[in-house]
Design a protein around this nucleic acid. Sequence first.
DNA 1: ACTGTTGCCGAAACCGGTTTCGGAACCAAC
DNA 2: GTTGGTTCCGAAACCGGTTTCGGCAACAGT
Lengths: 378, 378
Amino acid sequence: MLNGQKERNAPIRRAKRVTISDVSNALGLTKGTVSRALNGYPDISDSTRNRVRRVSEKMGYQPLSHAQAIKTGRTRSLGLVLQFGDHDSHRPFLADFLSGISHGASQENWTVTVATADSDGDTLKTVQQLLDERKADGFILPRTMTDDPRVRLLRDASAPFVLYGRTRDTTDCAWFDILGEDAMHDAVLRLAKQGHERIAFVNGGSEYYYSVLRLQGMLQGLKEAGITPDPDLIATDAVRPEDGAAATRQMLRLANPPTAFVFAVDMAALGLYQVAAEYGLAVGSDLSVIAYDGVPEGAFATPALTTFSVDSRQAGERLAALLIRRVRGEAVQNLRETANATLVERGSDGPPTMTSNHLVRVVSAHSKKSEYPKGGTK
Amino acid sequence: MLNGQKERNAPIRRAKRVTISDVSNALGLTKGTVSRALNGYPDISDSTRNRVRRVSEKMGYQPLSHAQAIKTGRTRSLGLVLQFGDHDSHRPFLADFLSGISHGASQENWTVTVATADSDGDTLKTVQQLLDERKADGFILPRTMTDDPRVRLLRDASAPFVLYGRTRDTTDCAWFDILGEDAMHDAVLRLAKQGHERIAFVNGGSEYYYSVLRLQGMLQGLKEAGITPDPDLIATDAVRPEDGAAATRQMLRLANPPTAFVFAVDMAALGLYQVAAEYGLAVGSDLSVIAYDGVPEGAFATPALTTFSVDSRQAGERLAALLIRRVRGEAVQNLRETANATLVERGSDGPPTMTSNHLVRVVSAHSKKSEYPKGGTK
DNA sequence: ACTGTTGCCGAAACCGGTTTCGGAACCAAC
DNA sequence: GTTGGTTCCGAAACCGGTTTCGGCAACAGT
């Protein structure tokens, strides 16, 4: 679609910039020479190069990125396509994440172009468009899936990108990721040490690769704690409170319910609180829960949610740095970093106050009771 | 600072685009003519113009914004500089807000460039830089202050901008805003109707213009309810839970404490919950509270916070549309829109269970008691 | 029939950079 | 004193558009 007809624009009066010609005139050189000097071409003598650098710095010369782009195709801007859909995904971290990206970008005098989409297809379309319009030189891909169509698209277009998260096929992939598997592992061991023997795991969206990893970490933790995994105590695809509540409810109705829960996602874990209230169970004693993400909402729950918090700002900053290096041609093998989530100990976990056997009686008692009155939360 | 030397770039293989020359060749016209035809110059015959439009559409021609920018100075991108500082400001709404902006921008084939800053000075510097580098044709200014330096900067540079919020000096200002004053007014009347007679108001950051407006709305509400305002029941600069807690605590210790609170900011209102727990007061009955913003955290408090929710996505979308029209030269007088917040009735308000006199006894009893044990929240 | 207008388009300059190409100057070697 | 090879810079083309200017053809006026 062409942008319509009579789009007559108002003039923007802006301070006139110092151009490369200004610099070259001041130096008595041609603009071609100045350009080559500044861009590190080898056929410029050191003395001239230094002279050019000094003068252009003094004159405050800054090349106009879109003027360079016309020849180079590069804009010095990184693209970020956020997909907001059904569940709130990265909503809570967004501010920090963006702040980190922007900070990392501006370090190198780059900018950030963001766009949003509301479906996978929409996201791909948007990425493609940004690429076509040269509005982004490369992309940061948050929330990577096990098999990610964005990766396929960009790989095929041989356009630079960097993942926030990992993925199955790592060909051409650079990434930054938090070791969620380690966090899950630690969470299980912590609960086991507190005396829990029935530990449930409620995983996040199964399309995301982090789910694969976190499950692995959890299972490894169980193994080290000497607990045999029980398939009934593993749920998937819980990302919203409702999902978490459903999973919790189902597991509590087992003949041998868990006394502790590990959630792969904070927001899902918040659903447990609601179910606990329904059954009259105290979170942090009757029922323990540890989750992952560090969303602000967790701090406002009572008791506050023990969680593994990720530093989204750092993630953003590292991703920006990595992507810039990627655009500049560095090999992906050098561009893979990880970091750890940090445990925030709060009040939602602790030694169990009842055994699984005791718990099952409380739950069933409540179930019978609530068949008559319309079981309220209060 | 010049971007260093040997920044040798990797080639990006990208689908080759159809350029204006391709189109002009196909038509047997010069590229100048094609350009003028597409951009609505009057010296092109209707028949030619239509022919050009048809063919370029069929060929999928899309002008490269940075190629146009080199001559026009415009990139078709709107700038958004987010300031994250001390308190979390727009953190919770950011996702929706961005989504709205991005959506509004892409409607007209524009893009969004975002940057972040962590102080007022930093923000101004960033805006200036984006302007200098032509990375943004105009700016969306969220959280406008009564006297906003960003407005002064952009006004002086005669660069287009649009406010999210209003400000004192409206010269050259276009805006979109939510009528927070109406919300505050309605909140007061609602509480008054429930039977409250002592109604406190805890305002937000006093540098923001919304505080001026919301206070006005609140006072108007009191007036209509026939309640004389009490200066002791008005606090300011509460934007975080701690701030709200402090204000609440102070007012509860008055000889004649309020039974209801209106908060200008949700996050501050969450602090009241903590203080209520300290004093053993039940929110929603012993103490009523209504706030404003609609942050997700409010839904997770118990009881859930009654609040006036703002549609940030809509705000973003409208702002983008307004800014684009502004860049295209439309007069600011046509570019001023407002909308209303919508009341979300939840459990944090209701008829008072005690009079102010009764309340004061509960509070003082608790104060004495808590001098001995180390007063815990639990 | 001669002269102004007007409508419409081509030609060419321009925007601010990058990149290719060629040649002048200098040096060393034979 | 040629020749050959480097080193280093100027000249000019180029990128993909926009905008100014001028001129040709058609039309109207007298």
